[in-house]
């Protein structure tokens, strides 16, 4: 865990410094003894800087027990041979694209493509199954939520 702790500590320290800098720009109330809007952010910044510093020290101490850069690679379950980080990354990319597409094309038009994409990434290769489920399930969800539950669904800017 040594390397991970060091990377995490540096990232958190950088964040705390940025957050603290923003906190100094908050207005301070001097008219009463009451703490102003900057009070809690200051406390949080000091606490995070202290704790991230401790994590950095822990990381440096723990570095000796780490077997090189292998520490940075997530461990896959030994029993599962089909474990793939590439598939997880591809899936996350599909999800990110879907979230971006929602703003432009809305739920109705973007969800079938998302279903097909994510099902394909997660291992479904039969074209018939992909086509039928990618159309039928989003349609079912669309009408269920719009007509039965009467909830607002994301509408695209293009539509």
């Amino acid at each position: 865990m040594g390397l991970r702790n060091i990377i995490g500590a540096i990232a958190i320290l950088a964040f705390a410094l940025w957050y603290g800098d923003l906190a100094t720009q908050l207005p301070k109330r001097v008219t009463t003894d009451a703490p102003g809007p900057h009070f809690i952010p200051y406390l949080i910044t000091i606490s995070i800087l202290f704790l991230a510093g401790l994590l950095l020290v822990q990381g440096i101490i723990g570095l000796r027990a780490t077997s090189g850069l292998a520490d940075l690679v997530p461990q896959s379950p030994v029993s599962n041979k089909s474990y793939s980080f590439g598939r997880a990354a591809a899936g996350m990319l599909v999800i990110a694209l879907y979230f971006s597409a929602l703003r432009w094309f809305g739920f109705f038009w973007s969800t079938p493509f998302f279903f097909a994409g994510l099902m394909w990434v997660s291992g479904e290769r039969r074209p018939g199954v992909l086509l039928v489920l990618a159309i039928a399930v989003p349609l079912f969800l669309f009408f269920l939520f719009r007509d039965l539950f009467q909830l607002p669904l994301p509408k695209g800017n293009f539509l």
């Binding site: 999800i95 279903f115 994510l118 969800l141």
Partner: peptide, 16 residues
């Protein structure tokens, strides 16, 4: 493969 997109779609609907 079917379960995962359904979960994401429901998360989107709930959040939105």
């Amino acid at each position: 493969s079917l379960l995962l997109p359904i979960i994401i779609a429901l998360c989107v609907l709930g959040t939105y």
